[in-house]
């Protein structure tokens, strides 16, 4: 199996995601350049954090038009697994692969700190290594992480069980205080209805090594690896270009 990390010109957590997947999780990982049309036969696309195209207009707004993202859209619609972290989540929202939008944090400040998130659904491809109700300690670092969805959309998301992570206290209680950015329903991460696309604001790649203070983020990568390695080779594009392993 192989991971691909998308590299927009303003991505700045691209190497961090690459490091976590390749050096910590020890899985083959390639970088995917935003101008390319080639997903290099990867089994999972990771959209990393950063400011894709400067994000001056609106977070993730321009990234969705990039050549590579057209491929990612097709890949996702075909059931390929896509993980969007922070800016990657914002791009997935703009792309329409996930419902809703992001507003500025409620206090109008960039926030970089460890938060606790509760696993709401441990059956997804992104959480199967976790327990339902498990609390993960993972850092956030964003200005626009205040999740918003129109009332009807929100109702659907909740009804379909698409909320995968919620901001919570260390003991798992979901409170207003724990909801640092003001997200609706304390939402920190959601999946699409099919369950192959997940976006979350916290950065699991920053919580993958004990030396850096938390290993809780590994749970997400481990889950992905579990699901991908068991079901391989589910939907690899037939006779695609020779995958370049490095």
């Amino acid at each position: 199996m192989k991971f691909g990390v998308v590299q927009f010109p303003g991505s700045n957590c691209d190497f961090d995601a690459f490091h976590a997947l390749r050096n910590v999780m020890k899985r083959p990982t390639v970088m995917l350049w935003h101008k390319d049309h080639d997903l290099q036969g990867v089994d999972c696309v990771v959209l990393p954090g950063g400011f894709a195209y400067g994000d001056y207009l609106r977070v993730g707004a321009i990234a969705r038009f990039s050549p590579l993202m057209q491929e990612v859209r097709t890949f996702a619609r075909g059931g390929g697994r896509v993980l969007g972290i922070c800016n990657g989540f914002q791009v997935l929202l703009e792309l329409g692969l996930l419902p809703g939008a992001m507003l500025r944090n409620k206090d109008l400040k960039f926030l970089c700190q460890h938060v606790h998130i509760r696993v709401e659904d441990a059956k997804t491809d992104f959480t199967r290594a976790a327990r339902k109700g498990q609390v993960l300690r993972i850092p956030i670092a964003h200005f626009d992480g205040n999740y918003y969805a129109p009332a009807r959309t929100l109702r659907d998301i909740e009804r379909n069980g698409q909320v995968v992570f919620r901001y919570c206290e260390a003991d798992g209680t979901v409170t207003a205080e724990a909801n640092v950015n003001g997200s609706m329903g304390n939402i920190a991460g959601i999946r699409n209805t099919e369950g192959n696309v997940l976006g979350l604001m916290p950065h699991p790649e920053r919580a993958s090594e004990a030396l850096l203070g938390s290993e809780d983020g590994r749970t997400i990568f481990e889950s992905l690896i579990l699901s991908l390695e068991r079901r391989k080779p589910a939907r690899r594009p037939a006779a695609g270009k020779a995958a370049r392993h490095d």
Binding site: L57, R58, A61, I62, F65, E94, G100, A101, L103, Y148, A149, P150
Partner: peptide
């Protein structure tokens, strides 16, 4: 398409 996000 571009300048506004119709959701918000």
């Amino acid at each position: 398409r571009v300048l506004a996000n119709p959701i918000i």
